[in-house]
Design a protein around this nucleic acid. Structure first.
Lengths: 111, 111
DNA sequence: CGCGATACCTCGCCTGTCAATGTATATTTT
DNA sequence: AAAATATACATTGACAGGCGAGGTATCGCG
């Protein structure tokens, strides 16, 4: 991985939720989508992904159902809930704030 | 703390280095500076701060020396090294990349 | 003298990441 | 038909960074 993963830490859930906003999806597909989007410069590890799914489901932010085994192995689909949409919105505004804050704090100070 | 700390994770060292770029400083002062800069919306916890100092010193990114007890308790000053300046520069470019990446990945996807 | 501010430090827990490993099925290759 | 590859999900155990809680010491003020 080219990008230091500690910086990405804490964004896993938001990344997942972002992918579920428009349509239901499943782990493998989300992972592939991320790899394509970032052209390999960042990969969500499977273990990380699935533990995040567990967290989100337990928090009532997503729900899961089995389906769509037509093409290959069985898939567990996830759908975002109202809770999830709310969390996504919160995380997005938090991120905007955090971005500014980090920019300010990591700028060489002249005082 | 208002901002989710996991998002800030991994930036502690960069924040410290940023404060040492222009002048030597010590823990308490750096902490106070951060609190003022962010108007209380983010506080680097002492335990976090001092463990980060240890890490940075062990990595040869900063060096420490005792001094300046004139006003109160004794202070341990830190100075940035060439290694530290390099790490700072790397972290900054990483951050720019990561910012773009996160923005891209947490945007609701329309595909 | 007690209290608050200054200043530093450590222990142990918690949480998120991830390498390693395992399972099962479908498709493609040999 | 067997082997390899791709699809797809899941768990375990280790690791690292953040931080709550607690501790030490000095100085000035009332």
């Amino acid at each position: 991985m080219l990008i230091i993963s500690d910086v990405l830490r804490g964004h896993t859930e938001t990344i997942i939720l972002a992918h579920l906003i428009n349509k239901d999806s499943y782990g493998y597909e989300i992972n592939k989508a991320i790899q394509e989007k970032t052209q390999g410069s960042f990969e969500l590890k499977e273990a990380t992904l699935y533990t995040a799914f567990r967290r989100l489901e337990q928090a009532g932010c997503i729900i899961s159902y089995w389906g769509g085994e037509e093409t290959g192995a069985r898939r567990r689909y996830y759908a975002i809930t109202e809770n999830g949409k709310q969390l996504y919105a919160e995380n997005k505004t938090d991120w905007e704030k955090a971005k500014q804050l980090i920019d300010k704090l990591t700028g060489a100070c002249t005082n």
